[in-house]
């Protein structure tokens, strides 16, 4: 699992019941749009995330697309994050090598 994916899953898991839109996830995960959206598309293809369009509150407002982890997605995300954390603890830190998960 890559660092960006770890961050996206972490952001979605922060409140799994809350639907999140793209810009919100960008800020939470600290990822640029060009990295975040392909990841979300892949997660949706895998059935780990579902998306839905919001109903505009005001006339002329463009609807946003919200993302949320599925039940299976929550389980998988928790498992993957736990495994990634365990791997980090097992792996000895090497000088000059970036910490896993720190790369954008």
């Amino acid at each position: 699992m890559t660092g960006p994916l770890e961050r996206v899953l972490g952001a979605l898991l922060a409140d799994p019941a809350a639907p999140r839109y793209g810009y919100d996830l960008m800020k939470a995960a600290g990822l640029p749009s060009g990295t975040l959206y392909p990841l979300l598309a892949r997660l949706e293809q895998q059935g780990l995330v579902v998306s839905a369009w919001e109903t505009p509150q005001q006339e002329g407002q463009r609807p946003r697309k919200y993302y949320q982890l599925t039940a299976g997605g929550i389980q998988t995300a928790r498992l993957e994050l736990a495994q990634a954390s365990a791997r980090r603890q097992r792996a000895p830190a090497r000088p000059g090598r970036p910490v896993p998960g720190s790369l954008g």
Partner: peptide, 10 residues
């Protein structure tokens, strides 16, 4: 539609 909708929000 999705990406353009974020522009005014940002």
């Amino acid at each position: 539609r999705e990406w353009a909708a974020e522009l005014p929000a940002i």
